[in-house]
Nucleic acid binder design. Structure first.
Lengths: 346, 346
DNA sequence: TTGAAAGCGCTAACAA
DNA sequence: TTGTTAGCGCTTTCAA
């Protein structure tokens, strides 16, 4: 039995009790718990049995105190706008991360870094090796020095998405360039001749990369890049709607458009409908994200699928890998392939 | 200076060093850190100064070891379907929770409880008083016994959303009944005479509550409840589209519809358009959620706004309040008001 | 009001 | 292979 204290809180058994029940010393019990090889099978069995009988669970605080490792990983999300969590992107990434953490018996500490307020005094003082072993960064802002500061504190970091101009960073990203290139190539193969694009915000790496893919696809078939066929949106439905209108004003002869996000593509679909055009008859449309809405829009949206859960998994595994090797390894990076999902809009 | 260890990890200063620098005993330094009243002002100042100078941050592990409190709160999300994170609902709630945790220097540990797999052996063994002081539960499933098991382990809990048939639970919810009632009352006041509803899944409390609000609004003006005017969806756009079609087949004379979620309302809008009807001319539509899409749909959607961030705040504050009082208090509950946002669809 | 000291539960170094 | 022991950094009695 485990006993309980005066306030009714069940009192967890300690390693001491496990050792006593197993008839061994505390050190030996500790070795068994931590999978040390230098323990005889009989001793191991006796300890395991005692652990099971008592329902023993190691006290993480005591353990951290001596090992100086916490078992916790921070998931840092900067400036959680409406967008961030709202996008299925986050759901998938977080799920992937969470599964890996579960598998490794590690805790995920969620840290939302809000705007200037927190930034002012000591930004996320909690994010130090004293509290977490490492950190996963999502949606960093351009020019933010938080990553550098965290590294200075001795934290091992892995970024979701390639951080621009940070050679020291380790990161995992989806192949935005390739995904966009493939989408535009698909439109060209279908015989479209005047392919426009609604690009994402130029201050976001994903926005820039997807525009780059558009250029590369044109270049691959010897078509010139024409600024008239590019309009910039902010990744929202409204932004896509406006961008599409502006494109139609400039070039009423366009017959296809690659849109750098599904919400923007839905806005574009609406603008096209309002202009009296048919999709894909008059204009073919391809989005990016493969969000749930894409499957049920009118018409269903051809779009680029990103392996979001896998992105989370890879991030988590890369971080745990670096931690296992003892930290100071070379920066590493992984790019995950995207795939085109064909639907009615193209 | 704080010194550093061989591996380059900066070595944090300890309370011992703070005490030495301030010229006091370790116990006294501890009292200052923890805001004990029985410390002279001069002593306090000296210690504070030493803390600032050394950049001292208490070691949470050491603290937990003796206080038996962790400073951590778990955010438990059951079965994170696509839906869950995808909805702006989650973004707001998590943001509210996060802010309160920041204010109280507490950590938020994210625990995603996946399907049967985890459930099978020991479900979230981590969720015990040894690791977290309490837990916030989001999107619990009907009949799930996780809450009860966590309480048995001695954890203090607060639910987001009213847990059906759990008298011991503390919870915070938005006024789903009132919000729905107000939405339908609004349609009736606008002169609509045949108000249908697309209800949410009957196995979800929010779905049931919103249907209840619909009934109450009809009852308030002496109108009978007519099953022909009710169709059930699954809170998705596709579900709303289908439900709207089925309603139109049964009752082609309906002139208004209250839809229990915005995604479903967008689907309903599409079905109405496809049937050749105008909104709000032929049929007025009101949704529920005030999601970003509602503002930019065609026409913009009248909908019920929920104070999502506040819901998170209230949950977090309720939990921390219960914890402060020392646990075994009465179950408590809070219902937050919703508000109708008038737009073009009604 | 303050200092000294015990001890929270564990790991790891050292002996045996 | 095993037991013993010295702390990890902190809070909290107990005396003074």
């Amino acid at each position: 039995m485990t006993g309980s204290r005066a306030d009714g809180t069940p009192q967890r058994p300690t390693l001491e009790q496990v050792a006593a029940l197993a008839g061994v010393g505390r050190g030996t019990a500790s070795r068994v718990i931590n999978g040390s090889p230098s323990v005889s099978p009989q001793t191991r069995d006796a300890v395991m049995k005692a652990v099971a009988e008592l329902g023993y669970v190691p006290n993480q605080a005591a353990r951290s105190l001596v090992t100086r490792r916490t078992g916790a990983i921070a998931l840092v999300i900067s400036e959680p706008e409406e967008r961030l969590f709202s996008e299925p992107f986050f759901a998938g990434v977080v799920r992937g991360i969470s599964k890996v953490m579960d598998e490794h018996d590690r805790q995920l500490v969620l840290v939302l870094v809000h705007g200037a307020a927190e930034r002012a005094d000591e930004p996320a003082a909690y994010l130090s090796p004293q509290h977490v072993d490492g950190a996963l960064l999502l949606s960093q802002h351009e020019g933010d020095d938080l990553p550098q500061r965290l590294r200075d504190r001795g934290l091992t970091l892995v970024h979701g998405g390639r951080p621009p101009g940070d050679e020291e960073a380790s990161w995992v990203d989806v192949d935005n360039v390739g995904g966009a290139r493939g989408a535009v190539a698909h439109l060209l193969e279908r015989g479209r001749t005047t392919v426009a694009t609604i690009a994402g915000p130029p201050d976001m790496q994903a926005g820039r990369d997807r525009l780059q893919g558009y250029r590369e696809a044109l270049g691959a078939v010897g078509m010139p890049f024409n600024p008239d066929l590019v309009s910039v949106g902010d990744f929202t439905e409204l932004g896509g709607w406006r961008a599409m209108q502006s494109l139609l004003e400039q070039r009423d002869d366009l017959d296809a458009v690659f849109v750098a996000s599904d919400p923007m593509a839905l806005g574009a679909l609406r603008a096209l409908r309002e202009s009296g055009r048919t999709v894909p008859g008059d204009v073919a449309v391809v989005g990016f994200d493969d969000s749930p809405m894409a499957a049920v829009s009118d018409p269903p949206l051809t779009t680029v699928n990103q392996p979001v859960e896998r992105l989370g998994r890879e991030m988590a595994e890369m971080l745990l890998g670096s931690l296992a090797e003892g930290g100071a390894t070379e920066p590493r990076s992984v790019v995950l392939p995207t795939s085109l999902v064909l639907r009615g809009s193209s």
